[in-house]
């Protein structure tokens, strides 16, 4: 089995992660209930003819994908994999509302075409003229992790040498308000809802600044009590123990289900730094891709931004990081990274 390395990580998010070098010192916790991404000027990255039909998510995905390839010096990946929880919700809303308002008359195709879940992956392939393996995962809070698992599998089994993989979700205009309504009724997500795109180039080639993606495991359903056992087993499978882990990055979002994260964090000793990020980046189905972006950046820069520290903080050297994410007690993912 070939080892799987992360060669580049690029993110458009609610913070300034895209155009500057990784530095969160200027970042501020989000205060509004909904937070848009900090969008770069897309005209710089996408030709006008393609851009005119693209909704926010497609623009974010295509742009981060392009930059991730550039940073990894890859012109043509062997596979393009995308994860998106809500898909192209902007165009879905547009087409749905036109059906309702016009009573099925005078409908035009563009928003329907662009509403298809695989639009980001397709537009990346189209832009690159990349005829390789292409797949899109749409499984709630495991959308990105499923794409990442597929990407890692392609590298591990030597089916691909370099893979472009990412997660993207856009805020949209209408459905998000219904989601917030449900969350508020159920003591759910407290951090703002947001959007973003994070893309990575995975490769079998070991490079100087490359981060090893040791392992990734997902579970549809776990009880809170199972978390320590599952987490310990996950580490053990990879020949690690809790004291080997320098930082754990959890997806805390202020909901009652943060109790799962408490269980996970309690597994680690005081020497493991405990980090969170959704207070800065908001919640959405593929927010965990930003978690991975942060994990990769922390290992590459050997620095943990203060704004991410949740509990214990240790100034040990940073070699190994664990990420844990779940959404309302479902769709659990564990990722192990190292240098």
């Amino acid at each position: 089995m070939k080892a799987c390395y992360i060669h580049s990580a690029v993110s458009i998010s609610a913070q300034n992660t895209f155009e500057t070098v990784f530095n969160l010192s200027e970042s501020k916790p989000l205060t509004s209930r909904k937070a848009n991404s900090n969008h770069p000027p897309y005209k710089t990255y996408i030709a006008p003819a393609a851009l005119r039909r693209m909704a926010t998510g497609v623009k974010m995905g295509v742009t981060t994908g392009k930059k991730a390839l550039e940073k990894a010096n890859i012109t043509m990946p062997d596979a393009v994999l995308t994860g998106t929880g809500m898909g192209c919700i902007e165009d879905t809303e547009t087409f749905l509302n036109t059906i309702i308002a016009n009573e099925e008359a005078y409908l035009t195709p563009t928003s329907f075409i662009q509403s298809t879940h695989n639009t980001v992956g397709a537009q990346i392939a189209l832009g690159l003229k990349c005829k390789a393996y292409n797949n899109t995962y749409v499984h709630g809070a495991l959308s990105f992790e499923s794409a990442l698992l597929d990407a890692k599998l392609l590298i591990n089994t030597d089916e691909s040498q370099s893979v472009l993989v990412g997660g993207v979700d856009e805020l949209g205009k209408e459905f998000i308000d219904y989601t917030i309504l449900v969350e508020d009724q159920n003591n759910g997500v407290k951090v703002p809802f947001s959007e973003g795109a994070s893309f990575f180039v995975l490769s079998s080639e070991k490079q100087e600044k490359a981060i090893l993606l040791n392992s990734l495991k997902t579970y549809s359903n776990l009880t809170e009590q199972e978390i320590p056992k599952v987490l310990n087993a996950f580490l053990l499978e990879n020949n690690y123990q809790t004291q080997d882990i320098d930082a754990v990055i959890c997806g805390n979002n202020g909901s009652v289900s943060d109790s799962y994260y408490n269980q996970a964090r309690a597994v680690f000793p005081i020497t493991t730094s405990q980090l969170h990020y959704k207070h800065l980046f908001g919640e959405f189905f593929t927010a965990s891709a930003i978690g991975l972006f942060l994990g990769v950046s922390i290992l590459q820069n050997q620095h943990i931004p203060d704004a991410l520290v949740l509990g214990d903080y240790s100034k040990n050297s940073l070699k190994t990081i664990v990420l844990y994410n779940q959404f309302n007690g479902r769709d659990h993912s564990f990722i192990l990274l190292s240098i």
């Binding site: 995962y137 495991l142 549809s220």
Partner: peptide, 19 residues
């Protein structure tokens, strides 16, 4: 997720959408 729950599958579950 609903189908997996009804079948009792709790581990690897995912969804693909490529039209």
């Amino acid at each position: 997720q609903k189908i997996a729950d009804a079948l009792g599958i709790t581990g690897f579950v995912t969804t693909i959408s490529t039209a």
